[in-house]
Design a protein around this nucleic acid. Structure first.
Lengths: 253, 253
DNA sequence: CGCCAATTATGAATCAGATTCAAAAAACGT
DNA sequence: ACGTTTTTTGAATCTGATTCATAATTGGCG
């Protein structure tokens, strides 16, 4: 039967991964700007033509890369979503996952941002774009599951909003803050230091506004910090608290 | 004295405006992707070299363009900020200004997004980037003035936050939503329709969470809508309510 | 006005790098 | 082993940004 076809398909997929692996390491080493198709091909010991058998254009490859990176992102989100804490704290854990990932993989965020630009996005192939959209669904699902539980436990009143809609504020706010952070100099120019700490505070405000229990006082940095530390310890023990851009380096000696 | 120098400087500035005007109209006509330096030069009846006397690179020109567009944006923001309404409603008016502008000038938003990408941003010249940052200050000032008044009137308790920090949530949330909207298919894939209406609701939640008076009930679309219509009428009478992506087309016949 | 030095404009030439495609090689089935 | 189909190859092409030697213009001055 089609076993030959199968093997070929498998080999093709393997090679695609090789291309993506190498492309990613090149980007991490030399930046997005310096990724060259010809060099990528030769570093993988294939010809340019072969590379183009996989990706219809450079942008296509970039979208594929961004899509792939979603995997490691998902792992963090799931940890946050699966953690056994109050739903509201889990929402915060999800935000933290997002922030930690952005810290750990800054180059990935630049890629994701670049790729979701209209210009770049539209230069990728239709299929690639669809695959990218599809890949982001599990992440949204993880978040939605927490929302669902929050609603069913009565921690938050959906007021007719769907699960996706209920977390859209959080989503857009973190997305936007990442964007502002990555535009070098922008926040400094507007004297907004510690953007991610601010993001946490704003998130508390938003969740309070949605009436998500238990409400958090906004004027108690101590308590906010304690909660963050708890989440860091329980959910992300493998991340150093010291490098976490959110937990403030106050007191503690 | 330096009158000759002055004239030269003036002529140079005029020519730069011509380049920018034409570049903008080309982009609006044919999209960001199709802007070509050589064609731009010839359409302006100058040589390529002359064009490069003004802009160190294509990206440099794009940043200049994005910077320039801030002007018309500012006008809307100021209207919102100067409007004589409760400070909370003025914050909403600012959000509306942002949304209306994004609707009216979709190509500008693509440009702004593209330009604030790390890759593109860093390809522009230092001076150009600084000018861009500087240009955004008046907008932030307009917003900050409303925040200041809100605080001084006692509509909102700053809880130690600066004016800039107090509106950072609104800023990042709208920025983020624009971003999500412009990534074609993303919101549809996550079944989030009417993104801007959602943005308004989330903004109400955020402002409620900050305790910004008068609080708005989140579960009363009628009232939300009435408020939006009032702002549209009083502040943005030159924008058609029909095309406004926020005021919902409910009832009314 | 005519001339020289300095400044500015020009656009053909160069360069960078993505993409294509005719030819060569490898794989397949018989 | 052989003809056919599929895959790979990389030199050639193409696109478009950027440079820079040359030409033109300008301002100043006798």
């Amino acid at each position: 039967m089609g076993s030959v076809q199968d093997r070929k398909k498998r080999q093709l997929a393997e090679r695609e991964q090789i291309f993506l692996d190498r492309a990613w390491s090149m980007i991490q080493r030399e930046g997005l700007l310096n990724l060259q198709m010809a060099r990528l091909a030769s570093e993988c010991e294939y010809s340019v033509g072969t590379l183009y058998q996989h990706f219809s254009a450079k942008e296509d490859l970039l979208v594929a890369l961004a899509t792939r990176s979603v995997g490691s992102r998902l792992e963090l989100y799931r940890r946050a979503a699966d953690w056994q804490g109050p739903t509201r704290h889990r929402m915060l854990a999800i935000l933290l996952a997002d922030i930690l990932f952005a810290q750990k993989e800054p180059e990935y965020f630049r890629l994701a941002q670049y790729v979701s630009t209209h210009t770049v996005w539209m230069s990728a192939s239709e299929e690639r774009r669809e695959a990218a959209l599809l890949a982001s669904v599990p992440i949204a699902d993880a978040v939605a599951s927490v929302v669902r539980e929050g609603v069913s436990r009565g921690d938050v009143d959906p007021r007719g909003m769907s699960e996706r809609e209920l977390c859209s504020g959080l989503w857009s706010m973190s997305e936007g803050m990442h964007m502002l952070v990555s535009a070098a100099g922008l926040l400094e120019a507007h004297s907004v230091p510690r953007p991610y700490q601010l993001l946490v505070t704003n998130t508390h405000a938003l969740l309070n506004g949605l009436g998500w229990q238990p409400l958090q006082p906004l004027d108690d940095p101590e308590q906010q910090n304690a909660l963050l530390e708890q989440i860091m310890t329980e959910v992300f023990p493998d991340f150093s608290m010291a490098t976490c851009p959110v937990v403030s380096p106050t007191d503690s000696e």
